[in-house]
Design a protein around this nucleic acid. Structure first.
Ligand code: MN
Ligand code: MN
Ligand code: MN
Ligand code: MN
Lengths: 151, 151
DNA sequence: TCCATGTTGTAGCAATGGCTACAATATATT
DNA sequence: AATATATTGTAGCCATTGCTACAACATGGA
């Protein structure tokens, strides 16, 4: 290991740096965000959110939806009774609206850069969950350069 | 359900739309990308990539690193022998460089929008895995408006 | 009313990605 | 060389997020 030389020495193993921790925690929240966002959308467009509809729209089986809904129930984001459709709690509705807004801003921002709409929406679906408040504001600012913080 | 009226009718449950499938698949690749990227970085800066160093830098325990390395080995991204340090295969090195480049472009792009460096790097850590070729090119183009595709 | 179909729920499997506790090996210090 | 420390590996736990197969319930049509 130290005869012919080829390794550039070892200037300290370096302290912890990359926070995969944050990424992992975000993953745990991504599902919740995508579900409540879709639940809100279904309620707004069809009047109710059913397990089957969610499964179809999210591209997973009804089994997966069912169990996820139970988790969201435990987290206080939705209410659901056996064989009945799904409702958002106040917290769920709030998260739903935040997620929907952020998703839209990210997608619009990408489109404004010239990314094709379909690609922009697809990318936004994944990127949205990793966009901090600061970055979201930078995106929004870029979208409306004139105004600077009015609702 | 149809007496007092409050639900806006049901204009079809709508066909599958959102591709959580893509998001899931991307998740499956995130770990691989983050690991090979870090392995490449460790080899470049300290001469070798050890389990302990990876654990420290990624913010997980050495146990998690160990098992992940076995998975990467099966996927042909790294080679590793018991009690020896980890090496990248050709495929691993290529993925490492691609990931590193994309990570850097995303981070630089966010910084160019005025996002604080620390936040930009943190956001990029998660966003990078969901950035398509088209979006990456849009980011890169925004960074160097003059040049248009020269290496 | 009866039955077919649609919807929801449950049982049980797999892969991923965390962890603690403990064992084995390698390296460094005396 | 002997011992202490650091590193690596293994056993076994948990939660999440997928799935298929099957059971139960609800609802519309005959
Ligand atoms: Mn969304
Ligand atoms: Mn999403
Ligand atoms: Mn990265
Ligand atoms: Mn990353």
């Amino acid at each position: 290991m130290s005869s012919t030389a080829s390794a550039p020495a070892k200037p300290r193993p370096a302290p912890p740096r990359v926070s995969l921790l944050r990424t992992r925690k975000e993953h745990a929240q991504e599902t919740a965000q995508d579900y409540v966002e879709m639940i809100g959308e279904l309620i707004a467009t069809t009047g109710e959110a059913r397990v089957t509809d969610l499964a179809r729209r999210l591209g997973v089986t009804h089994v997966t939806v069912n169990r996820t809904i139970q988790r969201l129930r435990r987290r206080g984001l939705v209410t659901a009774l056996p064989y009945r459709s799904i409702f958002l709690t106040d917290a769920g509705r709030q998260l739903s609206e935040e997620s929907r807004f952020r998703h839209q801003v990210v997608a619009d921002f990408l489109k404004s850069l010239g990314v094709p709409a379909a690609v922009a929406y697809a990318d936004a679906e994944g990127m949205e969950h990793h966009v901090s408040r600061e970055t979201l504001e930078a995106f929004a600012k870029h979208l409306r350069p004139g105004r600077d913080r009015a609702g």
